[in-house]
């Protein structure tokens, strides 16, 4: 396995940082009800060399499943109400290794705020050093933000498509009512929008509403 890894032939034994090697063995659990975001996160972690990543999508029996996996790090979407279930693990330290919330060390308020803003929270199990999860958390924050941007773009694209449909239908109404060509219909919509200082889609919507009334 190791021999076949790209670049490992020429690498001297000491070139792999000790920390990196240890980190790849960290067991990471992602609790996220959004399968797309969880997949994006998992991919990112795997690219960064973390091989033991598991996703839990459903909330049923969450604690039992986490105990079974026995992870070192738990990453959870802040929009998941299941976060409160995780908090119970602080109380049940007899049965499992005791997890600690990311927030326990307040020295790094900026990164905690960045995480909360991005919508992710982390729990570290056992005596894991903070530095070792900083890179995981940074990765999560950037992936969560990337996912958020992606979603915004998707919403915008959908809005744009909806606007196109409204304008097309308004053009159709004008073409039929005034025997306009498509270009003329669009030119009228655009001119009216400019005169009234409105968006073309708003004018188009008015045309459709009016057409509905005159039916």
């Amino acid at each position: 396995m190791v021999e076949s890894r790209k670049g490992s032939v020429s690498a001297s034994p000491g070139s792999q940082p000790q920390g990196g090697q240890r980190d790849s063995s960290l067991k990471i659990v992602i609790v996220d009800e959004s399968p797309i975001r969880a997949a994006i996160l998992e991919d990112g972690l795997r690219e960064a060399g973390f091989t033991q990543v598991q996703r839990i999508a459903e909330t049923h029996n969450l604690l039992v499943r986490i105990y079974a996996i026995d992870p070192d790090v738990i990453l959870i979407d802040l929009e998941s109400p299941s976060r409160d279930m995780l908090e119970q693990m602080f109380q049940m330290s007899r049965a499992v290794k005791r997890p600690v919330a990311m927030f326990v060390d307040q020295s790094d308020t900026a990164s905690i705020q960045a995480a909360v803003d991005a919508g992710v929270s982390a729990y570290i199990v056992g005596g894991l050093k903070k530095e070792r999860i900083t890179s995981i958390l940074d990765l999560c924050i950037s992936r969560f933000n990337a996912f958020h941007r992606l979603q915004t773009e998707l919403d915008q694209a959908k809005d744009a498509l909806d606007e196109r449909k409204v304008i097309d239908r308004a053009k159709g109404v004008l073409m039929k009512a005034k025997k306009y060509s498509e270009e003329e219909a669009y030119a009228l919509l655009r001119k009216t929008a400019m005169n009234e200082n409105k968006k073309i889609v708003d004018i188009a919507q008015s045309v459709l509403t009016a057409a509905e009334l005159f039916k």
Partner: peptide, 9 residues
Amino acid sequence: VSWSNVRDK
């Protein structure tokens, strides 16, 4: 959605 969130925020 969670008391943990309310407390942390």
